[in-house]
Simulated assay, not measured.
Amino acid sequence: MPFGSSRVRRRTVPALAMAAAVALALGGCASYETTAPRAARDRASAVSQDTAVQGVDCRKATCVALTFDAGPSEYTPGLLDILKRENAHATFFMLGKNHVVEHPDTVRRIVAEGHEPANHTWTHRILTEIPSAEARAEISRTQDAVERITGRRPVLMRPPQGRTDDEVSRICAELGVAQVLWSVTAKDYDTNDSALIQQRVLDQVRRDGIILLHDIYPGTVPAVPGILAELHRRGYTVVTVSQLLAPAAPEPGRVYRP
């Protein structure tokens, strides 16, 4: 969901070129370190000789990760039809209440068709603004629901509005999920103009980027074919977040952001 007016100031971390940032969140200052996808890949390659990647290897291919937040919804089956036709895969950061539990067949289809299931909390509460026990429940309830439906427990979580801090990171580490932010947003929550959504994505996209869209708004899914076509024309390979990080595995608690 939208990052609002948050600003990020980057600094250099010596070891293995790990990216870091200090985010000034809407609700106050929150300092946390982030890791770029390329830095994660470089680190994994540096510490192990066994770095073979099944499928797309984003160390060689020009990759961009496609992600959808806050579904599934009535629009998601049509989106899955498009992705299947275009042989593209995405990561779905799903909400538990009124979404995962209301659309179990769609959740099963997401996994069956090779997409990556991920967590966007139970009710989209801002994790940095609620007690730790409630933040933990927001994440764990969706973990449990997705696992009950698919047999697969998510390893990625996107904090609502991108707001996180050290306490949220500690909870995520305990629950076994890495945090994923983004570099491209179409702000499709404020427009149903599919052409505008498409243009906003394409204006921002760069190699190793993470695209944020929502499969809950009527203007978003119609924009996806044009986005995919132009990304392909520009030489991009569309992947899931975990594919973007490989051969690194998502590290629980860590915050990934291009």
Rank of each mutant, 00 (worst) to 15 (best):
H120W: 00
H120Q: 03
T121H: 00
T121Y: 00
T121Q: 00
W122Q: 05
W122Y: 09
W122C: 03
H124L: 07
H124P: 02
H124C: 05
R125S: 08
I126L: 12
I126V: 15
L127C: 09
T128D: 06
T128Y: 01
T128G: 04
E129M: 08
E129C: 07
E129R: 15
I130Y: 08
I130S: 05
I130W: 07
I130F: 11
P131N: 10
P131Q: 09
P131I: 12
P131Y: 12
S132E: 11
S132A: 15
S132T: 15
S132M: 14
S132R: 13
A133V: 15
A133G: 14
A133N: 10
E134C: 08
E134S: 09
E134H: 13
A135D: 05
R136Q: 15
R136H: 11
R136Y: 06
A137G: 13
A137T: 15
E138V: 07
E138P: 00
E138Y: 05
I139E: 02
S140Y: 04
S140T: 13
S140Q: 14
R141S: 10
R141Y: 03
R141K: 09
T142H: 00
T142Y: 00
T142F: 00
Q143I: 09
Q143L: 14
D144V: 15
D144Y: 06
A145P: 03
V146D: 06
V146W: 01
V146R: 01
V146T: 13
V146G: 00
R148W: 14
I149Q: 02
I149G: 01
T150A: 12
T150V: 13
T150M: 10
T150D: 09
G151I: 14
G151Y: 15
R152V: 12
R152P: 00
R152G: 03
R153K: 13
R153H: 14
P154W: 06
V155A: 15
V155H: 14
L156T: 06
L156E: 04
L156Q: 02
L156K: 06
M157I: 03
M157K: 02
M157H: 07
M157V: 04
R158C: 01
R158W: 06
R158A: 08
P159N: 09
P160G: 06
P160M: 04
P160D: 06
Q161F: 14
Q161H: 14
G162F: 02
G162L: 04
R163G: 04
R163M: 07
R163V: 02
T164L: 14
T164S: 15
T164H: 04
D165W: 04
D165K: 04
